[in-house]
């Protein structure tokens, strides 16, 4: 279970998250939608502690981080291992092959043996449909392939929850499907996922719940069919009209 309580984030004078409360049960898939600048990325980055929240608390599978008092670096690093992050711009390591990208975390962070890490990495790349591309460098892969390596890299750390920040928005339309398919498979296997995306089909088919964010707060949350056909809030209605 993931629980976010009273999460605030401020950049200088700009208050970006204004009290986020959210509970995601284990194995659930939550899709986050909302206009640009509403704080979706910032919320994910706070969960991954790439940003330090101004105040609030996060807990993942019983591990707690309370930001109201200072949090030591060590604790942040170990907490971060509970979450796997998939970036909009993939952020693969360009000097490493697909296989090395996936092996890096298990070897360096978890201290696994090279053979064990290689075996696991191969299996993960196989799983995301890149079994024949293990020795390719990122620059030799298409965007969709790179993003799938990114997913495999995050999975290799065996996180409790996977965070996706618009994983397909940098992709050419014909490459979106292959990434979404991998994500749907993951969802079906019971991975807990928080996905920022505007792929409505993915939300309808894979999400247990859709959250609409605006202005740094959660405006509305509901089952996908409910929120898309029958939004309660005026702001949600407006936004859905704009993107459809």
């Amino acid at each position: 279970m993931i629980s976010i309580k009273g999460l605030y984030k401020q950049f200088g004078q700009l208050e970006v998250l204004k009290g986020i409360d959210l509970v995601v049960e284990k194995g659930k898939v939550v899709v986050v939608i909302g206009p640009s600048g509403s704080g979706k990325t910032t919320m994910l980055r706070c969960l991954n502690v790439l940003e330090t929240p101004t105040k609030g608390a996060i807990s993942i599978e019983g591990q707690n981080l309370d930001f109201s008092n200072g949090v030591p670096k060590k604790q942040i690093t170990s907490f971060r291992r509970l979450t796997g992050m998939v970036f909009q711009s993939y952020n693969l390591f360009p000097h490493k092959t697909a296989l090395q990208n996936v092996m890096e975390g298990p070897i360096i962070v978890k201290g696994e043996s090279k053979e064990a890490a290689r075996k696991k990495a191969r299996a993960l790349l196989e799983k995301v449909g890149l079994g024949d591309k293990v020795d390719y460098y990122p620059a030799q892969l298409s965007g969709g392939q790179q993003q799938r390596v990114g997913i495999a890299r995050a999975l290799a750390m065996e996180p409790e929850v996977m965070l996706f920040d618009e994983p397909t928005s940098a992709l050419d339309p014909e490459l979106v499907g292959e990434v979404l398919k991998v994500m749907k498979d993951l969802a079906q296997e019971g991975m807990t996922m928080i996905v920022v995306t505007h792929e409505m089909r993915f939300a309808r088919e894979a999400a247990d719940e859709v959250i609409f964010m605006d202005g740094g707060v959660i405006v509305e949350r509901n089952k996908p069919e409910e929120i898309f056909t029958n939004p309660r809030e005026e702001r949600t209605k407006k936004f859905l009209n704009m993107i459809q």
Partner: peptide
């Protein structure tokens, strides 16, 4: 790019690990 540090951190690396394994080689 900053994203390289963040990718390192996101798989649990410390500053030193990210520096040594990800940033300095590039």
């Amino acid at each position: 790019p900053k994203g390289q540090w963040e990718a390192g951190y996101s798989i649990g690396m410390t500053y030193t690990q990210a520096l040594k394994r990800i940033i300095l080689p590039q």
